[in-house]
Simulated assay, not measured.
Amino acid sequence: MATLRERKNYREAILKALYEATEGNRLLGVTGPKLRDELRIPRQDLAAACAYLAGEGLVSVDWEQGNTPAMVSLTHQGIRLMESAEEERG
Rank of each mutant, 00 (worst) to 15 (best):
L27F: 14
D45A: 13
L74I: 08
R43T: 12
E6F: 01
R7Q: 14
E38D: 15
A49L: 04
A85Y: 11
V30L: 12
N67M: 04
P42R: 07
E23K: 12
D37F: 11
G32K: 00
E83K: 09
L46T: 02
E64I: 00
E12C: 09
V30C: 08
L81G: 08
L18K: 01
M71P: 04
G32Q: 02
S84Q: 14
A85C: 09
G24D: 09
N9S: 14
L81S: 07
M82F: 06
T3K: 07
L18N: 03
V72W: 01
A70R: 09
M1I: 10
L15Y: 04
E87L: 14
G32W: 01
P69V: 01
Y10T: 07
P42K: 03
M71N: 10
G32H: 02
L46C: 03
L53N: 02
N9T: 14
E86T: 13
C50S: 09
G90H: 06
K34Y: 12
T68W: 07
P33F: 05
P42N: 05
A54W: 00
E87R: 13
E83R: 10
M82N: 06
G55E: 02
R11F: 05
D45G: 05
P42D: 11
K8S: 15
E64Y: 00
Q65N: 11
A51V: 06
G57H: 01
T22N: 06
L74Q: 04
T31P: 08
V30Y: 03
A2Y: 10
A47M: 03
G55S: 05
T22Y: 05
L27Q: 13
N67L: 01
K34W: 14
K8I: 15
E88H: 12
Y10E: 06
A70S: 10
